[in-house]
Design a binder for these strands. Structure first.
Lengths: 168, 168
DNA sequence: TTGAGTGCAAACTTTTTGCAATGTT
DNA sequence: AACATTGCAAAAAGTTTGCACTCAA
């Protein structure tokens, strides 16, 4: 975990604290433990991966609490929820990370990320034309890696980032 | 149903026939009945809506067959499957209809459509940069209608189309 | 103290699967 | 006639809910 990652976790904790206080919700250890686990992970994850991962670390959490807490974290924008075409919701931490979209390999299911400012302008234009206030979007490119051995490469990180010049 | 819609249905039946013959699959009445039902509908639908709708018309189909047939139709590109953020897959007919993306009202869940050629060029560029052969994408804008009474307007069609100059 | 939040298990929803019956080729 | 496909019902997969207990405020 990089220093930036750690800073993001600390900042995220502050945001969560403020959010909970503001909403009159309780600052339970479970909520912070789940937040920490998420900000310590590097990749996209689903509810069960997170749950199992915490169980393995001897945390005492139930699936219901994981679901509840993820709702809270999504609501305060610390976590983003994705429905990547399957019936399994995927999540990813979002504080301190640049807005990005996804590219998913239909062979190996690797998730990559990219940024393109034109999407923002399309969003603005379409919103205006259709009288919609667009507040977020989801753009996913599905395809196959053209490099050899896409499916079996374990030497590349699960999530690659293009143009991730985020410096907080 | 317009004449264009009818033509699309006829063309779709031919495509399905060719596909089934090519794959050595059987041309069962259920498959054509489901195709016809889909091309007769005007909107997006989920498995249960389609199933109920066919039951009401006294077709004899089971949910399993609807699921199986939808897989076939998606595979031969006559139907597109969407996972609009919920755990309920939505489908829509796709033959003879221009490529488009979606805008979903987070208040009333109305689905609108739009086209923008820039998405294609972003797709090409990103694919090249990340060494991916992108073969399809999903772009959804989420937002709220800025016109009054968005939630309750029944006078607008469920699916609005912008730039739908399809003449097929 | 007290009720929001938790763990657990049961319920629910959507999709998939097993199997005997059916009907296309 | 052979076997892919169907209907049905049961199972699976993912998520939500009910309830008694716990602990943050």
């Amino acid at each position: 975990m990089s220093q930036i990652g750690k800073d993001n976790l600390e900042a995220a904790k502050k945001i969560l604290t403020a959010y909970l206080e503001n909403k009159g919700l309780r600052k339970t250890p479970e909520r912070f433990a789940i937040l920490e686990e998420i900000y310590t992970r590097s990749d996209h994850f689903d509810v069960d991966e997170l749950y199992i991962s915490m169980k393995n670390k001897k945390y005492r959490v139930s699936r219901a609490t994981v679901y509840n807490t993820l709702d809270v974290l999504v609501d305060c924008d610390l976590v983003t929820k994705h429905q990547f075409g399957k019936n399994l919701a995927q999540y990813e931490k979002s504080y301190g990370f640049k807005q990005h979209d996804h590219l998913i390999c239909t062979d190996c299911h690797k998730v990559m990320e990219f940024c393109d400012p034109r999407i923002q302008s399309i969003q603005n234009m379409v919103g205006e034309m259709l009288h919609f206030k667009v507040d977020h979007h989801s753009l996913i490119f599905y395809g196959g890696c053209t490099r050899p051995n896409c499916e079996n490469r374990k030497d590349v990180p699960e999530v690659e980032v293009l143009d991730q010049n985020n410096t907080n």
